[in-house]
Simulated scan of single mutants.
Amino acid sequence: MDRPLVCVGALVSDGVGRVLLARTTKWRGLWGVPGGKVEWGETLEDAVAREFREETGLILTDIRYAQTQQAVLSPEFHKPSHMLLFDFFARADQTEITPNEEIAEWAWVTLAEAAAYPLNTYTRTLVKLAQQEDG
C-alpha cells in the first residue's frame, strides 16, 4: 500500500538579507526551495541538512522549524504524489552553489524579489511566512 512521503525543505538565508530559490526538474518549471525525502532513522533537521549538502553543497546552520504542509496529488509536481512537507528556515554562511542534477537554476534574492518569482504554491506560503516573521 502506498503511503505519504515525508519530505523536508528550507528557505535558507545568506545572513545579508537574501534567500535561496531554486528551479528544479520536479515542479514543472516553477521555483521552490531545495529539499527531499527523509531517510529511515534520520531526524527532520538531519534530513534537511543532508539534502542541502547533496543538492547545493551548502552547509546549513541555525535550522529551525517553520511549518508543515500537505501536497496531495498536486498538479504542480511532476508525478502523482502524496507528500507531507516539513519546512524549515536556516542560514548558510557560504553562497557558492554546487548544484546536483536536480537543480536547473538558482538565485539569491530578497524576500520581496522572491514573492515575484513563479513559485510553487508550497514555497509561496513559506516565503509569506518568512515575510511575516521579518516584518
Score class of each variant (00 low, 15 high):
residue 1 M to L: 14
residue 2 D to G: 08
residue 114 A to I: 03
residue 36 G to Y: 05
residue 22 A to F: 02
residue 131 Q to T: 08
residue 12 V to D: 01
residue 82 H to M: 12
residue 17 G to I: 08
residue 41 G to H: 07
residue 104 A to G: 13
residue 58 L to R: 05
residue 110 T to K: 06
residue 101 E to T: 09
residue 134 D to Q: 15
residue 59 I to K: 06
residue 94 Q to L: 10
residue 70 Q to S: 12
residue 121 T to G: 09
residue 43 T to W: 04
residue 13 S to P: 00
residue 77 F to N: 02
residue 69 Q to I: 00
residue 89 F to W: 12
residue 10 A to K: 02
residue 126 L to F: 00
residue 68 T to K: 11
residue 88 F to A: 02
residue 125 T to C: 06
residue 33 V to S: 04
residue 80 P to I: 14
residue 128 K to V: 10
residue 70 Q to Y: 13
residue 71 A to V: 02
residue 84 L to C: 08
residue 38 V to N: 06
residue 29 G to F: 11
residue 58 L to E: 08
residue 106 W to G: 04
residue 116 A to L: 11
residue 19 V to S: 02
residue 63 I to L: 07
residue 5 L to Y: 10
residue 45 E to K: 07
residue 20 L to P: 00
residue 44 L to N: 03
residue 81 S to N: 12
residue 8 V to G: 03
residue 113 E to S: 06
residue 21 L to P: 01
residue 51 E to P: 00
residue 108 W to C: 04
residue 44 L to G: 02
residue 20 L to H: 05
residue 47 A to P: 01
residue 43 T to E: 05
residue 64 R to A: 09
residue 70 Q to M: 12
residue 54 E to C: 05
residue 110 T to I: 10
residue 60 L to F: 01
residue 122 Y to P: 00
residue 116 A to W: 00
residue 15 G to L: 07
residue 52 F to I: 04
residue 111 L to A: 06
residue 5 L to N: 09
residue 74 S to T: 13
residue 125 T to M: 09
residue 33 V to T: 08
residue 92 A to S: 15
residue 57 G to P: 01
residue 61 T to W: 01
residue 83 M to T: 14
residue 118 P to F: 11
residue 62 D to W: 01
residue 110 T to L: 09
residue 82 H to G: 05
residue 120 N to C: 08
residue 43 T to G: 05
residue 8 V to E: 03
residue 96 E to C: 08
residue 45 E to P: 00
residue 8 V to Q: 03
residue 78 H to P: 00
residue 50 R to T: 06
residue 68 T to V: 15
residue 79 K to H: 14
residue 135 G to F: 11
residue 58 L to D: 05
residue 3 R to N: 11
residue 17 G to R: 05
residue 17 G to L: 08
residue 112 A to D: 15
residue 61 T to R: 02
residue 27 W to L: 13
residue 40 W to G: 11
residue 14 D to V: 07
residue 119 L to Y: 05
residue 115 A to V: 00
residue 37 K to Y: 11
residue 44 L to Q: 03
residue 99 P to H: 10
residue 107 A to L: 10
residue 41 G to F: 09
residue 5 L to G: 05
residue 28 R to S: 09
residue 80 P to R: 14
residue 120 N to Q: 07
residue 93 D to W: 04
residue 133 E to H: 06
residue 70 Q to F: 13
residue 59 I to H: 04
residue 27 W to Q: 08
residue 23 R to C: 09
residue 46 D to A: 15
residue 117 Y to E: 02
residue 67 Q to P: 00
residue 124 R to L: 12
residue 59 I to R: 06
residue 82 H to C: 13
residue 65 Y to I: 01
residue 64 R to W: 09
residue 57 G to V: 04
residue 117 Y to A: 07
residue 48 V to L: 06
residue 112 A to I: 13
residue 65 Y to N: 01
residue 60 L to I: 01
residue 93 D to Y: 03
residue 35 G to P: 02
residue 98 T to F: 12
residue 2 D to P: 12
residue 118 P to S: 11
residue 78 H to N: 12
residue 26 K to R: 10
residue 93 D to N: 09
residue 115 A to P: 00
residue 48 V to D: 01
residue 115 A to S: 09
residue 135 G to S: 14
residue 37 K to R: 15
residue 92 A to Y: 01
residue 96 E to K: 11
